[in-house]
């Protein structure tokens, strides 16, 4: 009896001791160092990448490439921007960047007076270099250091050539663009037209639509009513491609048209796979981010001076529907 009691009591002690000890270890195990004390020197260069279209696949890739390059070079980089092409927000971000005295601004080009004022007057006043990425703006108006991105003129030419080989030297081509005057769009169109103008039998028509889906649908309807014998559609602004093709598909079999687009968004890629788009131009967004950061750092360090004002072009590639099938 006595032995049993002793055994029970000691077992109880052991159990309690075990729990107390484990609890004790847990309490003291918590590493409660305040992050402030874990330090971290501020990066040598503070760069910002500002875009109008945050959280789109294209810009995510640009951001990833840029962040990687920044990390490799020991620079701090943040991706700022507006969602859904909100210009006001976008410009505000640029102004904040300038007011924050960042070391370099990598920005998606925007052809607008305010943009030019900020980049020329404000940024230049503070001595902050600006590099445009993916979208260029005319150099004279923006005082940008350089441009990193696709050669849109060349892309246009590639599409033009492709169209020729698909369609032949005669036909009616509609170029669907955005009603915003964007540098890249202008370049693409001029690239296409430069190829096609050698063939008098090819009739081209440049149509501009608004940004929204409804506007694109409306415009597509309009053009198909007016011109029933269109042979080819080229979506100059990639965002328009989806709505446009959807509308064409409603009225006739889209496969009988030659449809081309730029930019490989998930939507266009899906359409390409389905064969509703014949070909599109694939850009290298991650390379754009990477290269722009590298050039910026080089410029800040004074390693490459001056930068090539005409810009540094990244690879473009023609994606054809038959390649994906």
């Amino acid at each position: 009896m006595r032995k049993l009691v002793i055994l029970l009591v000691s077992a109880l002690c052991v159990v309690l001791f075990y729990f107390t000890l484990s609890s004790f270890i847990k309490v003291f195990h918590y590493d409660l160092t305040v992050p402030a004390q874990s330090g971290g020197t501020p990066p040598r260069y503070r760069l910002v990448l500002i875009t109008q279209e945050l959280d789109t696949p294209f810009w995510n890739k640009v951001g990833t490439g840029a962040l990687q390059a920044a990390k490799q070079n020991g620079a701090g980089l943040e991706v700022w921007g507006s969602y859904g092409k909100n210009r006001e927000d976008f410009l505000k971000k640029i102004e904040i960047a300038i007011a924050s005295h960042v070391d370099g601004i990598i920005v998606q080009g925007l052809e607008e007076e305010e943009f030019n004022r900020l980049t020329t007057v404000k940024a230049a006043e503070k001595g902050i270099p600006v590099i445009t990425v993916a979208n260029d703006v005319p150099m004279e108006e923006s005082l940008r250091r350089t441009y990193v991105g696709s050669d849109h003129y060349k892309a246009g030419q590639m599409i033009g050539r492709r169209l020729l080989s698909d369609m032949g030297t005669a036909g009616h081509v509609v170029l669907m663009g955005s009603n915003r005057e964007e540098d890249y769009q202008r370049r693409r169109i001029s690239g296409i037209l430069d190829i096609l103008k050698a063939y008098p039998n090819i009739r081209t028509e440049v149509v501009t639509a608004g940004e929204t889906r409804e506007e694109v649908v409306q415009k597509t309807n309009e053009i198909m009513n007016k011109e029933p014998n269109v042979d080819a559609f080229i979506a100059v602004a990639a965002n328009n491609a989806g709505a446009m093709i959807q509308e064409i598909d409603k009225r006739a079999k889209v496969e009988k048209y030659h449809v081309y687009s730029f930019d490989d968004s998930p939507e266009t890629l899906r359409l390409l796979k389905l064969g509703k788009i014949d070909a599109l131009i694939e850009q290298s967004p991650d390379r754009m981010g990477e290269l722009s950061v590298k050039l910026m750092i080089q410029w800040l360090k004074g390693e490459s001076f001056p930068l090539d004002y005409n810009g540094y072009f990244t690879d473009i590639r023609m994606l054809r529907a038959e390649d994906l099938r």
């Binding site: 305040v34 992050p35 402030a36 004390q37 874990s38 330090g39 971290g40 020197t41 501020p42 990066p43 503070r46 701090g76 943040e78 904040i96 960047a97 007011a99 924050s100 005295h101 960042v102």
Partner: peptide
């Protein structure tokens, strides 16, 4: 003085922003 690993970038911006202001 509140700088830490996570906010170094923003904090510097912040301080500069105040300067600009």
């Amino acid at each position: 003085r509140l700088q830490n690993g996570g906010n170094a970038f923003t904090l510097t911006n912040y301080v500069n922003l105040i300067d600009s202001f």
